[in-house]
Design a protein around this nucleic acid. Structure first.
Lengths: 205, 205, 205, 205
DNA sequence: AATGAATGAGGATTCATTCAT
DNA sequence: GATGAATGAATCCTCATTCAT
């Protein structure tokens, strides 16, 4: 008994099922049938809505990124001043909803898929660009021209902590991960202050 | 033309062909036949020597890690003092032979496979443990108890830079990547000096 | 042209094709593709419905046994009294539909497969148990405690005649085979009568 | 270090290894490599001596039959008079060396292979012919023209008991099996005596 | 809108057989 | 005589995709 307006519901169910299944399998070796079954629909319907398996994956990635983006935006509205905003961005990255082994696994896999799928690649590049621009936006008032370099380091650190948790057996601890990044941020900021007052190269003993 | 003592030669050819093919495909979706053909042997022989596709992948990973390990050791013999040793470790990570898009791609894929294959997981964990212990060994003389935390950050940064290059279209620039990590290292070291002289919490404005 | 409710039709076609192909090949060295082609479907569908080649074989065996069982039951409803019933059981075993070289061949092969496949073994054990209990049921009124031993002999004789026809070049003659078993049965029954009146051991000269 | 006169030793080892492996596997799905390994030689050598896998199987079958034949002959030289000779033939069939689950399994498989391999078929037909002629030779003095029919029944019974043990989980009991056949033989013989003195058809009640 | 029957290409794996040494 | 390296055909099985209903 087909109903009207089911499309968004089905799409959503399929996207969520995709993330779940990828997390469960720990790889993209997930069949369309598995995804469809978990979403409670037929495999035919999955193709009907998404056209191909790759598109399903891309949609799933887009979903993860948009959830993440929404969280960042939400956190930013509450934050006051650059420092709080930076903290908000970093904490959002390791927020419990994102920093689950399931999502980490999907994330990892999407990086791999980005090597093959143009759609996947564009999405991840978009994510990187956004994170970068968010960080720069709030670093600039604090460190000026050094913002770009610093943003790149923070971003790499975040991604590095993600990837390192893909091997962990224990449950990911987002709290601890964000503390670590925040500590590094503090370090960079204070280092920047020092280096402004001290002649360049003075750091090296 | 069957000869005696071909085993090590074939194994080596197959391992190298595997890395090449994974790099070319950008994913583990590489057939045994492709690998075998590139190695100049039949697909049957690949199974004869490795038993299964997964084993071939694990062997390829082991190869990458052992090459990397050898480079680190070589660099360490030339280095004098903790600082030079730390620099050697970091530079080795981004040395031209490792930091090629081909190897980066294989690396990424192995992370993914580690979620499924016990052998792959163990190897990567081994890599992480070694890197960590190498770093700690030379950080301890410089920063004492802070070595552990600092090592984790450096390691995450290295991995993060790797992963970020998986999306790049341009050729990976190992030189620049290691400069970046080294700069961070300097920062952490100098920060450590400061914080020893300044009351805790004093950093926060 | 996919339709609804095709499953039973396809399963049936595949099972019959399996028996035909095994008979034609004279061995279980029959590919799934051959079976599928004869059934007029793709090889994929065969797996879709049965899961594996072994399952297809087991289903084919089950089919043969159920046809045989139905024939026995049908014959038994018409039979009056133990003797007629025994005759019905024996004749059913060599009935033209079962005692074809095709089915004999499949039968032989299933015995072999029973050494490897638990499913096959259970089915054949079930067949043996049923034949035995059918025979005992109607022998008991005639010979009492001797029924068990006698049933075993009749059953072995039936199987023996089957196996011996696997080597024959000529068409199996079920009529003659059942006459032979029936003659043996008569012999056993009359012998039983004699031995009741004559002191044990008196047979040996 | 090749030696002279190794051929018969190697052939023998391979033949025995074949029977062992078939017994172990419960099917003819045994690789030449397995057989060769068990015989302690290379797979190449197996082909060198036998030419093909089928020939190896045929040789193994020939071995089993010749052992069996030798046992029958040996038993016959000790036997005095037709009855003792018949008993000797039957007991030889279920002698401990033959009536092992290993050999039963090989036997079963050879019946199957006889449907495909001309060599196998000829050997089995030879076995059947010999058994038949042995039985007839000693039945004739006892029952005259009925010998042929009776021999066929005894032979079928023997084969039937063999096949029935292919499904048993317990160790085959050759002693009991031959008792059973001998009892049937007695029955047939005494029945023959009766029927000579009683009008035909008098058996039916 | 939704199903699931059906296909068929593709891939891992096995193994008999060959052959240079 | 003996090895075992090497091949490649053969086969089971999976799965994305299509399509009639």
């Amino acid at each position: 008994m087909p109903k009207l307006g089911m499309e968004p519901i089905r799409r959503d169910a399929l996207v969520k099922a995709t993330i779940t299944e990828i997390g469960r399998a720990g790889s993209l070796d997930v069949t369309v049938s598995q995804i469809a079954k978990r979403a409670g629909v037929s495999s035919g319907l999955a193709h009907h809505y998404f056209g191909s398996k790759e598109q399903i994956f891309v949609a799933a990635m887009r979903h993860i990124l948009s959830v993440y983006g929404a969280q960042v935006r939400a956190a930013l509205t509450l934050a006051k001043g650059p420092r709080e905003r930076l903290e908000a961005i970093i904490r959002a990255s390791f927020e419990a909803g994102n920093f689950r082994s399931e999502v980490i696994s999907a994330w990892m896999n999407f990086y791999v898929q980005a090597q093959t799928s143009e759609g996947a690649r564009r999405l991840l590049q978009l994510y990187q660009a956004r994170l970068r621009s968010n960080l720069i936006h709030d670093l600039r008032p604090l460190v000026g021209a050094a913002a770009s370099e610093m943003a790149a380091n923070i971003a790499a650190l975040i991604d590095g902590l993600y990837i390192r948790h893909a091997l962990r057996d224990s449950k990911p601890d987002g709290q601890r991960a964000s503390e670590r990044v925040l500590a590094c941020l503090e370090m960079m900021l204070s280092d920047h202050l020092c280096s402004e007052n001290i002649p360049a190269g003075g750091m090296k003993p």
